Amino acid sequence: MSRTPPATPATVALSAAGVQFSVRSYAHNPRSGSYGAEAVEALGVDPGRVFKTLMVDVDGTLTVAVVPVSSTLDLKALAAATGCKRAALADPKRAQRRTGYVLGGISPVGQRQPSPAVVDESALNFASILVSGGRRGFEIELAPVDLIQAISATVAPIAGLTPRA
């Protein structure tokens, strides 16, 4: 029995591009302190395989950064990877307007306005990774090379240290 995945801009874009993916859903807890940690726990997957999407202002250009939820984003490394000088997390309202997604559900795929994208090189260590599917509690599992191609991303070491609990 085949089940059609919920339609989000991300799933529509991947389907239109002919990219193979699967969806993983869970009941989002609005009191959760970390969307990424919640996904890891709810889905029971290696935290290195679940990637968060961060919108970053890199010298005035909104840029997509995709890093494991088990790590932080190294802003200096991202700036260097894009050939720029400064990077800072984007204003959340600006990120939501640009992408068309809500915080905790920002997908790197199917954004309202495409932005340059950088995926952390650790994604290539896995046959498949999970990224937000465009809603809280909704993840897309796909091959990292397919994600990189779908969003025309560059690959670079942009993950920083693992945050301490």
Rank of each mutant, 00 (worst) to 15 (best):
V58A: 07
V58S: 08
D59T: 01
G60A: 11
T63D: 01
T63R: 01
V64W: 03
A65T: 05
A65M: 09
A65D: 00
V66P: 07
V66H: 05
V67H: 01
V67S: 04
V67G: 09
P68N: 10
P68K: 06
P68H: 08
V69K: 01
T72K: 13
L73Q: 07
K76Q: 12
K76T: 12
A79F: 09
A80S: 13
T82H: 09
T82Q: 14
G83V: 08
K85L: 14
K85V: 15
R86G: 10
A88Y: 11
L89A: 06
L89G: 00
A90H: 01
D91L: 09
D91S: 11
R94H: 02
R94N: 03
R98A: 15
R98E: 13
Y101R: 05
Y101D: 02
Y101S: 09
Y101L: 06
V102A: 15
L103D: 09
L103V: 15
G104D: 00
G104N: 04
G105E: 02
G105N: 07
I106G: 06
I106R: 03
S107Q: 09
P108V: 09
P108H: 07
G110D: 10
R112P: 10
R112W: 01
P116T: 04
V118P: 04
V119A: 02
V119T: 02
V119F: 00
D120K: 07
D120N: 05
D120S: 10
D120L: 07
D120A: 03
E121K: 13
S122L: 00
S122Y: 03
L124T: 12
L124V: 12
N125W: 12
F126N: 03
A127I: 07
I129R: 00
L130I: 03
V131Q: 06
S132A: 14
S132P: 06
G134E: 06
R135F: 11
R135D: 12
G137V: 13
G137R: 13
F138L: 15
E139Q: 15
I140L: 15
I140P: 12
A143K: 15
A143V: 12
V145M: 14
V145Y: 04
D146L: 08
L147D: 00
I151P: 12
S152V: 06
V155Y: 00
